[in-house]
Design a protein around this nucleic acid. Structure first.
Lengths: 139, 139
DNA sequence: CACTTTTCCATGCAGATGCATCTAATGCAA
DNA sequence: TTGCATTAGATGCATCTGCATGGAAAAGTG
């Protein structure tokens, strides 16, 4: 892969990430009181098919540091969307489980999430001519 | 595009973004004292072919809010990598230009940046079997 | 068993980001 | 000209993030 196309691919990825993240953050927060990472955590827990998860497990799944994830789970717990408990097997550990309210909130937000993805991924497809060309610093 | 593949594509994008960003941040910071966004700004200014840029112009190019970009430019200025000046045409405005030191730093960091992209994009390509499968919460 | 190292999660802390807001300079219209 | 809406960029503030650290428990070593 040529260096040029490598950089180009990376910039496209950055652009798409920025657009999507921004839209998701806005819509999820406005309509469901959830941040993107929060939604992501709930979704992983719903889809994972397990009941309990370890903090580090969740962190890996959503690409967050262990500390960020710890706090994120704390926020979700305060909101009543997950519960934390002691791990009997390994008493250093903590397990996290999604509550019914958490499942409900996820189910409610899911269509919004999908709609945003659909909108962004289809419109950003490839059609030429973006809205405004403003300078040599093209995004 | 099916909803399932949409979500799948988005997760791949998230994963790649996380991996690359993390690696870039680490390498650029460790070896050149630059954050990823800082490098990005310098690069856009070098490649843009202009001498002066407006703050908002830079912000759009690197997918940052105007406020974040304002502070980022302030950091770069403090480091001597860019200069800010008054815009005679529109005295509300500010122009930003890269200094020789800024060009030098960019040139120095560029190989690192490319190396990281190359490493991440080629290894993450598609080969099956990631290092560890740890749970149903696959990243 | 006593001791050291490692692992798990929480937390102090500093840095970056976005939103809302503020000031100054334009622009437009009466 | 005067007055109001708009635009450019800076800044206060709250939030989120990662790094480094801390305490507790487990695992490894002699």
């Amino acid at each position: 892969m040529s260096e040029e196309s490598l950089v180009c691919a990376w910039r496209e990825l950055l652009a798409k990430h920025a657009t999507t993240t921004c839209a998701l953050e806005r819509e999820l927060s406005e309509r469901h009181g959830l941040g993107m990472s929060e939604f992501e955590v709930l979704e992983r827990m719903v889809e994972g098919g397990q009941e309990k998860y370890r903090v580090q497990e969740v962190a890996d799944a959503v690409h967050l540091s262990q500390s960020a994830c710890s706090r994120l789970i704390a926020r979700l717990e305060k909101a009543g969307l997950v519960r934390r408990g002691m791990c009997e097997a390994d008493r250093r550990g903590v397990f996290v489980l999604i509550t019914d309210e958490g499942r409900a909130r996820h189910a409610e937000a899911r269509p919004t999430h999908r709609a945003v993805l659909s909108a962004v991924f289809s419109s950003e497809g490839s059609p030429g001519k973006r809205s405004e060309e403003r300078s040599p610093l093209r995004a």
